Amino acid sequence: MKIRRKKKTIMGWIYSFIIFILIIFFLRGIVLFGLKKINMILLPVQSKIYTTSVGVRETFEILTKYKEIFKENIELKKKLALVEYQDELLKNFAEENERLRKLLKIKEETRYKTLVAKISFQNIQELYTTFSIKLGEQDGVKVNMPILIEKTLIGKIVETSAHYSKVRMITANDSYVSCLAENKILGILSGNTGESLYFKPTSTLESDLKIGEEIYTSGISDVYPKGLYVGKIKNIISENNGLEKIYEIENNLNIYNLNEVIVITGE
């Protein structure tokens, strides 16, 4: 009897274990099926989360690369600007060197005592009237000293201070200079606040000049010595029914690019 009971008990445990295993497998299938369903339901959400995370990562990488490219672009611009500045500086040095060579040659050829002065100020509203130079009383500059640009008369000193002077140009509206044409015809040169000057002979009987003839200072003035080049005849203007002639004079000066001038300080 005891043996039979023992067998029954063992068989009961075996059956119970088998049933337990079957239940586990059954439940596992249900759980897996449920998880599959849940995954299918959550797939759109997971997809959006994944896409968003990828987009964020790509955006971050783009921003990082943009910063690097932007920084590199700034550095390249700086280098380019530096090269352009150096090129412009070399060009300016070359131009200044050429101008100074010309001025030195003029100083050696002229019979006058001269000083070379830098333009210190030029008012855009007074381009053909006045400008200032960086030389003054302490440099020996005085009122009425003539001013040349290369070999061409441009004006005279009208005001001085210790280190600066003001120049009144012969192109100013109220400027008058006694001049001679090449054929010794005497006349008055006047300005008109513009590029051109106007030469009017003192005698209508001698006003027979031709285009291209050069005009020089006469030396009659106490300010300008004789023989300073002023310009050449560009055009002939007739007045009073052709009885009177006025000659338009050009001096080929670039008023927008004044850099250095020559001050005549004496013989």
Rank of each mutant, 00 (worst) to 15 (best):
N251R: 11
T152I: 15
I147H: 11
A181W: 07
I147Q: 13
V223G: 03
N259W: 00
F20E: 07
E109K: 05
P225W: 02
E95T: 02
V45P: 00
S53R: 09
L205Q: 12
A117I: 02
E61T: 10
G212H: 03
E213V: 00
K105G: 10
F26M: 06
F131P: 01
L82D: 11
V143Y: 07
L22Y: 10
N241E: 01
E72C: 01
L209T: 02
A94L: 04
L22D: 09
K166Q: 12
N183P: 02
E96W: 00
Q122N: 09
K210F: 01
S238V: 04
N97A: 08
L197I: 05
T114H: 14
S207N: 04
K156H: 08
I18K: 04
L180C: 03
K113R: 11
E84T: 06
E109D: 15
Y66I: 14
K77S: 11
F26P: 01
F93Y: 06
T202N: 12
L253A: 05
V31P: 03
F26I: 03
F20Q: 06
D174R: 04
T129Q: 10
L180R: 10
T171P: 06
I262K: 03
I255M: 13
I249M: 13
I188Y: 13
P146L: 15
N97L: 04
I264K: 12
A162G: 10
L35M: 03
K77M: 08
I21E: 05
N39L: 14
Y66Q: 12
Q122W: 00
G136T: 03
S218H: 04
T130K: 07
P44N: 00
I188D: 08
G242M: 08
Y164T: 04
I215S: 04
T204D: 15
Q125I: 00
F33H: 10
A172W: 13
F60V: 12
F60E: 14
V167R: 05
G55P: 00
D222Y: 00
Y85M: 10
E244V: 09
T193F: 01
K210R: 06
L243T: 07
L82F: 03
K67P: 00
I149S: 07
E68V: 08
Q138W: 01
A117K: 06
L186Y: 01
I74F: 11
I124N: 04
N235I: 04
E126L: 08
L148M: 11
L135R: 02
I19Q: 02
Y50L: 12
E126Q: 08
A81V: 01
T130V: 06
Q122Y: 01
T9C: 06
L153W: 09
I236F: 07
F17I: 07
S132C: 13
G266E: 11
I21D: 02
T129G: 14
K65S: 08
E213Q: 08
N254D: 13
L27M: 05
N92Q: 07
L103N: 01
D174P: 02
L209Y: 02
F60W: 05
I236E: 14
E72H: 01
